[in-house]
Simulated scan of single mutants.
Amino acid sequence: MSQHFKDAQSNAITQSGISRVIPCKELDIGDPIKWLSLGLRDFLRTPVISLFYGIMFAVIPWLIVFLVRMTGWHLVILPAIVCFMLIGPFLAAGLYDVSWELEKGHKPTLRHSLRAMKRNAVNEWGFGILLMVLMIFWLRVASLIHALYPPYLDDSLDSLLPFLALGTLVGAAFVSFMLFISAFTQPILMERKVDLATAVLTSVNAVWLNKVPMFIWGGLIFSAVAIGFVTGFIGFVFLMPLIGYATWHGYIDTITTKRERNYV
């Protein structure tokens, strides 16, 4: 092991004693593009399974919008988002299983990928609840920022600019925090029998040590989500499986193992 690698692993996270942190590798700036290309390969090799999960990811936000328009009751958004935050990680686990099976030289099946959702169910639910709590916190912060906007001001750009700037800064901080804790947590929980704290801190450690390529990766994810919303969630049918598969390859590329993976 090189001295640079040893130095990279010596930081407050790995030495905290809070939890066992799985070591990571140093990434190149172009690795996120490589992950996308590998994800596209997996999508093309498993189009039926990929479209199944893609449709699931597209239907959920579509149902949220449909319920709001049908009932006119915007309070339905919060419980709907809570359900999505709990279900989303399990759908992602199914996508990771597809890429995992392909790497092992197996033929992926929908049934096998669905069974992957319960491989580490307790910690998977724990992660979903963590995401749910963070999402509710963000919604409360966003409401607070909106409440700070004085009603007597007009809608000109000069009047809105301070609040747009504040919202953007707070939102960027929240998104960055989410990237740190969730970048590799889900694949770790699916492949390895580890606790939630170990998975989350391993993800934080890996992102911290590879800030530039990981923030590029975060930008690609944000762009995919934005395209999905702009296209009325239709883009999710293709983009969410692509991001899911690419995330698995990013995990394989980043988080080390004691023994080499003997994949075909």
Rank of each mutant, 00 (worst) to 15 (best):
I252A: 13
F184V: 04
F222R: 14
K107A: 08
K104E: 11
A246L: 09
M1A: 14
W62M: 00
G105K: 05
A12P: 07
F163K: 04
Y149W: 10
A8D: 10
G128H: 06
I13N: 01
A142S: 14
G30N: 12
D7I: 09
M117W: 14
G54H: 05
W35N: 01
V68F: 00
W217Q: 01
P61Y: 00
A173P: 03
T256L: 15
W248Q: 07
V141E: 01
M135C: 08
M178V: 12
L102D: 06
R111W: 14
G232Y: 00
S50G: 04
F222E: 09
S37Q: 13
A8F: 06
C24L: 04
T254N: 05
Q186G: 06
F174E: 10
A116W: 03
W35H: 02
A172G: 03
V141Y: 03
R20W: 07
T256S: 13
T254A: 07
A58E: 01
C24G: 14
Y251Q: 02
K258Q: 14
L91M: 13
L220S: 05
V122L: 12
F127H: 11
A206Q: 07
P162C: 05
L179H: 07
G171N: 06
R140M: 12
G128I: 09
T71P: 00
P162Y: 06
T185W: 10
P150A: 12
N262L: 13
K107E: 12
L196F: 05
D7Y: 11
S19H: 08
L63R: 00
D31M: 09
V207P: 00
L51V: 15
Y149E: 11
A116G: 01
I136W: 05
N11G: 07
V133A: 14
A172H: 13
V122A: 08
